[in-house]
Design a protein around this nucleic acid. Structure first.
Lengths: 252, 252
DNA sequence: CGGCAGGTTGAGCGGATTCAAATACAGTGG
DNA sequence: CCACTGTATTTGAATCCGCTCAACCTGCCG
């Protein structure tokens, strides 16, 4: 089973065996274990190396002076936590683990060099950054122009697609053990309202929650209420091989 | 007077004369003129080259199926419209002129090469992309955790700082001829509510509007209402020279 | 002068918040 | 095994921020 980082980037390109091995080697170095609520990188910190999520769930967040918190993104296996370290002095937000999470510490120098290459690897890293931008823009639309129900539906559907990318959504269900307070901080709602909205989505038979796992019982329905359109994830593998395996676009 | 693109990037680094000339040359090619409301790049389009705003005002936007519009970012002189063209097949949003706008068409190949360089230029381009990410994240906080007044104040203060970067905010006033409907689409409010909120900011003596130009009459006050903290713009010139000129951090 | 886009104002409504209390649940230690 | 504790979820009721709808005003341009 390939590592999630490779899996994710293969949504964009096709790697040679050699390239895959190179990626494997990069993340096979030091693995870090983070307890829930522990910062993986703190706001204002700097690091020479960067972190790739291997398992678990993390989030980008920022806390305002008056204590209000906003979660700006969820990070799942395969996601890069801190691409900014290559040029910026300090992080302008924090990244924290939400569940027990493991990350691979990847040499900043090696990453930087890879980004500079004209290769599948360099392109794929770029693609990751650009789709991160796309995801953030979509979140702005969520908050600005979608109501509570659409907003939560959109977030959940996006998570479904992203989990599918790294093959962690068997049967349209995925491990997503966040509290409703976390969900509220991510969607810009209050915990109470997040709760009531979630109940509606369940009542309409779109999703189910069994403990830590979310099961999307009506993917098409959820997609429809969310007005989801997956172009912003750019899952159109450019150097598509001869029909081997699943086409990336089929995931949305 | 240096071009705005160079000016902006000099908030991050210090260019040699040679580097400045190279930038000048890059944007001295074809200049494009765009009428208000005209797309500079359309959603779904692809281009081999990319656009740098030289004058005027543009925005990134997306329109939902039901007609709702969200403006995700404003682009002012010095801003790069479409860094994504290097790796992505198509734009996942549109960029439109809001006023008569001129852009320089920069060769995609030349840009791509520059990004690959280990040089001040390459770093500066990266910095631009990373701060774009920061700005988007801040917009998410705006929408998720700030009320109408804080939100508009935050946007306006950010615009002030960004106009200062390219020396277009003499006396804390800048040309920002957007309609209240545009402002509403950017802040996730309705035009009516944007109007009332704007009135409050004026009544409190924080801003003034004279025709097309916004004058920030009480910068400190506006900053306070907005709970503005400028770290996310990363205006800390790394290779700072011997105290020549204004320190970038003084702009926030 | 008429037309039109943008700005302003008022009144009523509603989605989301706030505050508060009740319930469910998991872990811990006696 | 159960009482105890802290955390998360659920429910209710009152309130408010921002929305909707609609009218009116203003400045600009043909």
């Amino acid at each position: 089973m390939p590592n999630p980082w490779t899996l994710k980037m293969e949504m964009f390109t096709v790697f040679s065996d050699e390239e895959k091995q190179r990626l494997d080697k990069l993340i096979s170095g030091k693995a870090l274990h983070h307890a829930p609520r522990e910062d993986i990188i703190s706001d204002g910190a700097h690091s020479a190396d960067c972190h790739v999520v291997l398992s678990g769930l993390a989030c980008r967040y920022k806390i305002l002076r008056d204590g209000r918190r906003q979660i700006m993104a969820f990070l799942i296996p395969g996601d890069l936590c801190d691409a900014e370290i290559f040029v910026l002095k300090v992080m302008d937000h924090g990244v924290a683990a939400m569940t027990p999470t493991t990350t691979a510490l990847v040499s900043g120098a090696a990453m930087k060099q890879m980004l500079r290459e004209t290769s599948n690897l360099g392109e794929a890293l770029w693609w990751g950054t650009m789709t991160d931008l796309g995801v953030l823009r979509e979140r702005i639309i969520d908050h600005g122009r979608r109501n509570a129900k659409e907003r939560i539906a959109h977030l959940l559907y996006e998570m479904l697609v992203r989990y599918r990318m790294v093959q962690l959504a068997p049967d349209d269900s995925f491990d997503f053990p966040i509290t409703q307070t976390d969900l509220a901080d991510a969607t810009g709602l209050t915990p109470v309202h997040a709760n009531r909205t979630l109940q509606k989505l369940r009542a309409e038979g779109l999703i189910e929650k069994n403990g830590r796992v979310i099961k999307v019982t009506d993917a098409e329905g959820l997609k429809k209420v969310a007005q989801f359109s997956g172009e912003y994830l750019h899952l159109d593998r450019v150097h598509g091989g001869a029909g081997i395996g699943q086409r990336a676009g089929d995931l949305v």
